[in-house]
Amino acid sequence: MKRELISLERAVAASLLLALPVSASAAGVDAGTLIENTATATYDAGEGPTTINSNTVTLKVDELLDVTVSSLDSGPIGATPGSVVLTFEITNTGNGPEAYTLTANPAVGGNDFDTAIDGIAVDSNGNGVYDPGIDQILTGPETTALLDPDENLTVFVLATVPPTVVDGDQSTVDLRADAVTGTGAPGTTFAGQGVDGSDAVVGAGGASDNATGSLIVGITTVDLTKSATVADPFGGTSTVPGSTITYTITAVVSGSGSVSGLVVSDVIPAGTTYRTGTLALDSSALTDASGDDAGEASASGISVDLGTVAGGSSHAVTFEVSID
């Protein structure tokens, strides 16, 4: 903070300065703003009104250092071994422009496993999604550009999930932002390091904040099992011409995730003929025609589109053929 006594003659110019709009942020008026104290007095001692001016005292608002970090992920990110992206937002809650050093810590207590941090990227194109090759990856020490008061910045923590994980494993990554000017107990002062030579002082949040993002491993598997039962024309189970074979293909989906675009298809075995109208999914009949429901069947084979199937569920596809 600089303090000045300004002589009477300068008071007019100083008033002009103060006429400039004061810009304020959530943290209050911006660092470097001048606060002026001056007074005018008039009186009439019989020779008409006389005006006198006081001296003027001007103070400069010092810079508050503060920051918040929050996770922009709505919940744990579904992940598989390989690359994963966690999204955070850094907000300058101080009253002056400030840059922040970012530190990503993958070793958080309670983790089933720790990710490997590959880097921290800023959302250069501002679309909220990590775009490899477009969004700038920070080089160590990872430091943001200057953020204006109230300005926020989306950053991405790029991590790798190791191949040793199992389905359902969870992991948390901590991202911390520290004001470059300095951090510490609220009130800690950095003389002359604020805007326009003002002092910088640590705000209520310690000029440092952190937030965590988490991920959960979802490894989903599909097991297909095919079985057959035979009925001969005589009420027995022998495979003779005219016998009917009923095939059942069971798809069992396991794991905490889901699979999409799951299609079960099979060919009609040589020496047999598909019995029209026998295709069914979970005991509900499907038409042989394509496009009207999940299934289709022809003389050459059958196909049933199960779409997206969540882990922990199973579906059975049945159809019949007759032995030629």
């Binding site: 903070m1 606060i35 008039t42 103070l59 400069k60 010092d62 009253n95």
Partner: peptide, 30 residues
């Protein structure tokens, strides 16, 4: 050291050092 939220007191001291009383003394401050 002053930051947003701090409480300041704006003071003004007047002094009549002359021999005469000063009537209708009006002090104005922005």
């Amino acid at each position: 050291l002053i930051v947003p939220g701090d409480r300041l007191v704006f003071g003004r001291i007047y002094r009549n050092s002359g021999p005469e009383a000063v009537p209708n003394f009006v002090v104005t401050s922005p």
